[in-house]
Nucleic acid binder design. Structure first.
Length: 256
DNA sequence: AAGATCGCCAACCGCAAGCCC
DNA sequence: GGGGCTTGCGGTTGGCGATCT
Protein backbone atom coordinates (compact mmCIF):
# COMPACT_ATOMS: atom_id res chain seq x y z
CA UNK A 1 0.00 0.00 0.00
CA UNK A 2 1.55 3.24 -1.07
CA UNK A 3 0.64 6.70 -0.06
CA UNK A 4 1.74 9.24 -2.56
CA UNK A 5 1.93 12.59 -0.96
CA UNK A 6 0.09 15.40 -2.57
CA UNK A 7 0.82 19.00 -2.45
CA UNK A 8 -0.92 20.45 0.55
CA UNK A 9 -4.10 22.06 -0.54
CA UNK A 10 -4.19 20.38 -3.89
CA UNK A 11 -7.35 18.71 -5.05
CA UNK A 12 -7.37 15.09 -4.03
CA UNK A 13 -8.96 12.28 -5.81
CA UNK A 14 -12.01 10.76 -4.28
CA UNK A 15 -10.70 7.27 -3.82
CA UNK A 16 -10.70 7.59 -0.09
CA UNK A 17 -9.76 4.59 1.93
CA UNK A 18 -12.13 3.16 4.49
CA UNK A 19 -12.07 0.34 6.94
CA UNK A 20 -9.30 -0.77 9.25
CA UNK A 21 -6.17 1.28 9.41
CA UNK A 22 -2.87 -0.22 8.34
CA UNK A 23 0.40 0.08 10.20
CA UNK A 24 1.69 2.32 7.43
CA UNK A 25 -1.20 4.69 7.76
CA UNK A 26 -0.81 4.77 11.51
CA UNK A 27 2.85 5.64 11.14
CA UNK A 28 2.13 8.40 8.70
CA UNK A 29 -0.49 9.89 10.94
CA UNK A 30 1.60 9.65 14.10
CA UNK A 31 4.65 11.11 12.43
CA UNK A 32 2.71 13.92 10.88
CA UNK A 33 1.09 14.87 14.15
CA UNK A 34 4.41 14.65 15.94
CA UNK A 35 5.75 17.30 13.62
CA UNK A 36 2.74 19.48 12.92
CA UNK A 37 0.44 18.83 15.81
CA UNK A 38 -3.18 17.83 15.65
CA UNK A 39 -6.21 19.70 14.49
CA UNK A 40 -7.37 20.88 11.09
CA UNK A 41 -8.07 17.28 10.34
CA UNK A 42 -9.16 17.62 6.74
CA UNK A 43 -6.07 19.46 5.68
CA UNK A 44 -3.99 17.23 7.90
CA UNK A 45 -5.27 14.21 6.02
CA UNK A 46 -4.47 15.85 2.72
CA UNK A 47 -1.07 17.15 3.69
CA UNK A 48 -0.02 13.91 5.27
CA UNK A 49 -0.93 12.09 2.10
CA UNK A 50 -3.47 9.92 3.80
CA UNK A 51 -6.37 8.83 1.67
CA UNK A 52 -8.66 9.20 4.61
CA UNK A 53 -11.22 11.74 5.63
CA UNK A 54 -10.29 14.18 8.31
CA UNK A 55 -12.89 12.61 10.45
CA UNK A 56 -11.33 9.23 10.10
CA UNK A 57 -7.89 10.58 10.99
CA UNK A 58 -9.23 12.36 14.01
CA UNK A 59 -11.03 9.26 15.22
CA UNK A 60 -8.03 7.06 14.71
CA UNK A 61 -5.82 9.45 16.59
CA UNK A 62 -8.13 10.06 19.49
CA UNK A 63 -9.27 6.51 19.97
CA UNK A 64 -6.17 4.57 19.23
CA UNK A 65 -2.94 6.34 18.40
CA UNK A 66 -2.83 9.03 21.04
CA UNK A 67 0.07 8.21 23.38
CA UNK A 68 -1.97 8.53 26.54
CA UNK A 69 -4.71 6.26 25.39
CA UNK A 70 -5.29 3.55 27.92
CA UNK A 71 -6.37 0.10 26.91
CA UNK A 72 -7.43 -3.01 28.71
CA UNK A 73 -10.11 -3.95 31.15
CA UNK A 74 -12.26 -1.37 32.78
CA UNK A 75 -11.40 -1.45 36.47
CA UNK A 76 -14.04 -1.50 39.20
CA UNK A 77 -13.11 2.07 40.01
CA UNK A 78 -13.69 3.06 36.44
CA UNK A 79 -16.93 1.11 36.36
CA UNK A 80 -18.06 2.98 39.42
CA UNK A 81 -17.25 6.27 37.82
CA UNK A 82 -18.97 5.37 34.62
CA UNK A 83 -22.11 4.33 36.42
CA UNK A 84 -22.13 7.35 38.63
CA UNK A 85 -21.42 9.79 35.86
CA UNK A 86 -23.88 8.15 33.54
CA UNK A 87 -26.48 8.46 36.25
CA UNK A 88 -25.81 12.13 36.26
CA UNK A 89 -25.24 12.92 32.63
CA UNK A 90 -26.78 10.12 30.66
CA UNK A 91 -25.16 9.22 27.36
CA UNK A 92 -22.72 12.09 27.46
CA UNK A 93 -19.84 9.82 26.65
CA UNK A 94 -17.26 12.42 25.90
CA UNK A 95 -18.07 14.22 29.11
CA UNK A 96 -17.83 11.01 31.07
CA UNK A 97 -14.58 10.17 29.33
CA UNK A 98 -13.06 13.40 30.56
CA UNK A 99 -13.11 11.89 34.02
CA UNK A 100 -11.46 8.66 33.04
CA UNK A 101 -7.93 9.49 32.02
CA UNK A 102 -6.85 7.61 28.97
CA UNK A 103 -10.27 6.24 28.24
CA UNK A 104 -12.06 7.37 25.15
CA UNK A 105 -15.70 8.14 24.76
CA UNK A 106 -15.88 5.33 22.25
CA UNK A 107 -14.51 2.86 24.74
CA UNK A 108 -16.90 3.93 27.45
CA UNK A 109 -19.77 3.85 25.04
CA UNK A 110 -18.81 0.36 23.99
CA UNK A 111 -18.49 -0.69 27.59
CA UNK A 112 -21.94 0.60 28.33
CA UNK A 113 -23.51 -1.05 25.37
CA UNK A 114 -21.83 -4.41 25.71
CA UNK A 115 -21.77 -4.81 29.48
CA UNK A 116 -24.33 -2.59 31.08
CA UNK A 117 -27.02 -3.00 28.50
CA UNK A 118 -26.41 -6.71 28.52
CA UNK A 119 -27.13 -6.79 32.21
CA UNK A 120 -30.26 -4.76 31.73
CA UNK A 121 -31.34 -7.29 29.19
CA UNK A 122 -30.64 -10.09 31.63
CA UNK A 123 -32.84 -8.34 34.12
CA UNK A 124 -35.52 -8.12 31.48
CA UNK A 125 -35.77 -4.40 31.75
CA UNK A 126 -34.79 -1.45 29.66
CA UNK A 127 -31.50 0.18 30.44
CA UNK A 128 -33.30 3.48 30.83
CA UNK A 129 -36.07 2.11 32.98
CA UNK A 130 -36.44 3.11 36.57
CA UNK A 131 -36.18 -0.51 37.51
CA UNK A 132 -32.75 -0.89 36.03
CA UNK A 133 -31.63 2.42 37.39
CA UNK A 134 -32.63 1.19 40.80
CA UNK A 135 -30.61 -1.94 40.27
CA UNK A 136 -27.63 0.20 39.47
CA UNK A 137 -28.29 2.51 42.34
CA UNK A 138 -29.12 0.04 45.07
CA UNK A 139 -27.04 -2.92 44.08
CA UNK A 140 -24.42 -2.31 41.53
CA UNK A 141 -22.87 0.90 42.74
CA UNK A 142 -22.81 -0.05 46.43
CA UNK A 143 -21.40 -3.37 45.42
CA UNK A 144 -18.63 -1.75 43.46
CA UNK A 145 -17.86 0.55 46.34
CA UNK A 146 -17.61 -2.45 48.61
CA UNK A 147 -15.34 -4.21 46.21
CA UNK A 148 -13.12 -1.23 45.91
CA UNK A 149 -13.01 -0.88 49.65
CA UNK A 150 -12.26 -4.55 50.11
CA UNK A 151 -9.34 -4.32 47.79
CA UNK A 152 -8.18 -0.99 49.04
CA UNK A 153 -4.77 -2.36 49.87
CA UNK A 154 -4.37 -3.79 46.46
CA UNK A 155 -3.42 -2.44 43.13
CA UNK A 156 -6.88 -1.26 42.28
CA UNK A 157 -6.70 1.25 45.04
CA UNK A 158 -3.63 2.67 43.47
CA UNK A 159 -5.35 2.65 40.16
CA UNK A 160 -8.18 4.55 41.69
CA UNK A 161 -5.83 7.38 42.46
CA UNK A 162 -5.91 8.12 38.81
CA UNK A 163 -9.56 8.02 38.19
CA UNK A 164 -11.19 9.52 41.20
CA UNK A 165 -12.74 12.86 40.58
CA UNK A 166 -14.48 15.31 42.81
CA UNK A 167 -17.81 14.61 41.33
CA UNK A 168 -19.66 16.30 44.07
CA UNK A 169 -18.54 19.65 43.03
CA UNK A 170 -18.54 22.00 40.16
CA UNK A 171 -17.96 21.49 36.49
CA UNK A 172 -15.60 18.87 35.20
CA UNK A 173 -12.00 19.75 35.39
CA UNK A 174 -9.08 18.36 33.60
CA UNK A 175 -8.56 14.79 34.61
CA UNK A 176 -4.94 15.44 35.38
CA UNK A 177 -5.99 17.56 38.28
CA UNK A 178 -8.39 15.08 39.65
CA UNK A 179 -6.22 12.59 41.34
CA UNK A 180 -6.21 13.92 44.82
CA UNK A 181 -8.18 11.20 46.42
CA UNK A 182 -7.89 7.98 48.21
CA UNK A 183 -10.47 5.36 48.72
CA UNK A 184 -11.73 7.23 51.70
CA UNK A 185 -12.32 10.28 49.68
CA UNK A 186 -14.22 8.07 47.37
CA UNK A 187 -16.57 7.76 50.26
CA UNK A 188 -17.18 11.42 50.37
CA UNK A 189 -16.99 11.96 46.69
CA UNK A 190 -19.20 9.16 45.65
CA UNK A 191 -22.65 10.55 45.60
CA UNK A 192 -25.64 8.35 45.16
CA UNK A 193 -28.44 10.26 43.60
CA UNK A 194 -30.32 11.87 46.34
CA UNK A 195 -33.83 11.74 45.08
CA UNK A 196 -36.08 9.28 43.46
CA UNK A 197 -35.47 10.04 39.87
CA UNK A 198 -32.18 11.67 40.30
CA UNK A 199 -30.68 9.50 37.68
CA UNK A 200 -32.36 11.59 35.08
CA UNK A 201 -30.69 10.15 32.08
CA UNK A 202 -29.79 12.95 29.81
CA UNK A 203 -30.10 15.50 32.50
CA UNK A 204 -27.30 17.96 32.73
CA UNK A 205 -27.53 19.06 36.29
CA UNK A 206 -23.79 19.02 36.52
CA UNK A 207 -23.42 21.46 39.31
CA UNK A 208 -25.95 20.11 41.66
CA UNK A 209 -24.91 19.19 45.12
CA UNK A 210 -25.74 15.60 45.64
CA UNK A 211 -22.95 14.87 48.00
CA UNK A 212 -23.30 12.06 50.42
CA UNK A 213 -21.11 10.06 52.67
CA UNK A 214 -20.21 6.63 51.53
CA UNK A 215 -21.32 5.36 54.88
CA UNK A 216 -24.80 5.93 53.63
CA UNK A 217 -24.32 3.37 50.99
CA UNK A 218 -25.41 0.61 53.28
CA UNK A 219 -28.64 2.42 53.69
CA UNK A 220 -29.48 1.79 50.10
CA UNK A 221 -30.56 -1.52 51.42
CA UNK A 222 -33.22 -2.49 52.13
CA UNK A 223 -34.54 -2.00 48.73
CA UNK A 224 -37.47 0.28 48.04
CA UNK A 225 -40.98 -0.88 47.41
CA UNK A 226 -41.43 -2.72 44.22
CA UNK A 227 -37.80 -3.20 43.68
CA UNK A 228 -37.49 -6.14 46.02
CA UNK A 229 -39.82 -8.07 43.79
CA UNK A 230 -37.56 -7.66 40.86
CA UNK A 231 -36.97 -10.97 39.23
CA UNK A 232 -33.40 -11.68 38.42
CA UNK A 233 -32.58 -13.75 35.44
CA UNK A 234 -30.86 -17.03 35.64
CA UNK A 235 -27.30 -15.99 36.17
CA UNK A 236 -25.02 -18.44 34.60
CA UNK A 237 -21.41 -18.75 35.42
CA UNK A 238 -19.42 -15.86 34.19
CA UNK A 239 -22.45 -13.89 33.33
CA UNK A 240 -21.54 -11.20 35.79
CA UNK A 241 -17.89 -11.84 35.72
CA UNK A 242 -16.71 -8.42 34.75
CA UNK A 243 -16.01 -7.44 38.29
CA UNK A 244 -19.59 -6.47 38.61
CA UNK A 245 -21.37 -8.87 40.84
CA UNK A 246 -21.66 -12.55 41.17
CA UNK A 247 -24.54 -14.89 41.58
CA UNK A 248 -23.84 -14.99 45.28
CA UNK A 249 -23.78 -11.25 45.43
CA UNK A 250 -27.18 -11.01 43.89
CA UNK A 251 -28.53 -13.65 46.20
CA UNK A 252 -27.12 -11.93 49.22
CA UNK A 253 -28.54 -8.65 48.15
CA UNK A 254 -31.91 -10.23 47.58
CA UNK A 255 -32.04 -11.38 51.16
CA UNK A 256 -32.69 -7.84 52.29
C1' DA B 1 -13.89 -31.06 14.27
C1' DA B 2 -16.92 -27.99 12.18
C1' DG B 3 -20.58 -24.91 11.91
C1' DA B 4 -23.42 -21.60 14.52
C1' DT B 5 -23.85 -18.09 17.68
C1' DC B 6 -22.24 -14.53 20.67
C1' DG B 7 -19.54 -10.66 22.32
C1' DC B 8 -16.38 -7.12 21.71
C1' DC B 9 -14.52 -3.25 19.56
C1' DA B 10 -12.86 -0.35 15.75
C1' DA B 11 -14.70 2.44 12.49
C1' DC B 12 -18.37 4.77 9.96
C1' DC B 13 -22.50 7.79 9.61
C1' DG B 14 -25.52 11.61 10.44
C1' DC B 15 -26.32 15.58 12.83
C1' DA B 16 -25.51 19.79 15.31
C1' DA B 17 -22.65 23.36 17.11
C1' DG B 18 -18.83 26.30 16.39
C1' DC B 19 -15.88 28.93 13.53
C1' DC B 20 -14.39 31.76 9.77
C1' DC B 21 -14.69 34.50 5.74
C1' DG C 1 -25.99 38.23 9.15
C1' DG C 2 -25.34 34.09 6.66
C1' DG C 3 -23.36 30.48 4.16
C1' DG C 4 -19.89 27.06 3.92
C1' DC C 5 -16.54 24.38 6.27
C1' DT C 6 -14.69 21.98 10.28
C1' DT C 7 -15.03 19.70 14.47
C1' DG C 8 -17.09 16.94 17.94
C1' DC C 9 -20.59 13.91 19.59
C1' DG C 10 -23.68 10.01 19.94
C1' DG C 11 -25.68 6.12 17.52
C1' DT C 12 -24.94 2.23 14.68
C1' DT C 13 -22.71 -1.36 12.10
C1' DG C 14 -19.47 -4.84 10.39
C1' DG C 15 -15.66 -7.83 11.15
C1' DC C 16 -13.30 -10.95 13.80
C1' DG C 17 -12.14 -13.85 17.59
C1' DA C 18 -14.12 -16.68 21.29
C1' DT C 19 -17.35 -19.79 22.85
C1' DC C 20 -20.94 -23.04 22.37
C1' DT C 21 -23.46 -26.95 20.32
Amino acid sequence: MEFHGKSCGGEEELDLRRGPWTVDEDLILVNYIAVHGEGRWNSLARCAGLKRTGKSCRLRWLNYLRPDVRRGNITPEEQLLILELHCRWGNRWSKIAQHLPGRTDNEIKNYWRTRVQKHAKQLKCDVNSKQFKDVVRYLWIPHLVERIRASSGGPTAAAYENVAVPITSGPPENSSTAGSSSLDTLGTQFSPPAVSDGFAAGGTQGGEDNSADVSQLGEFLPIPDGYADLEFPDFDQGMWGDNLWTVEDVWLQQQF
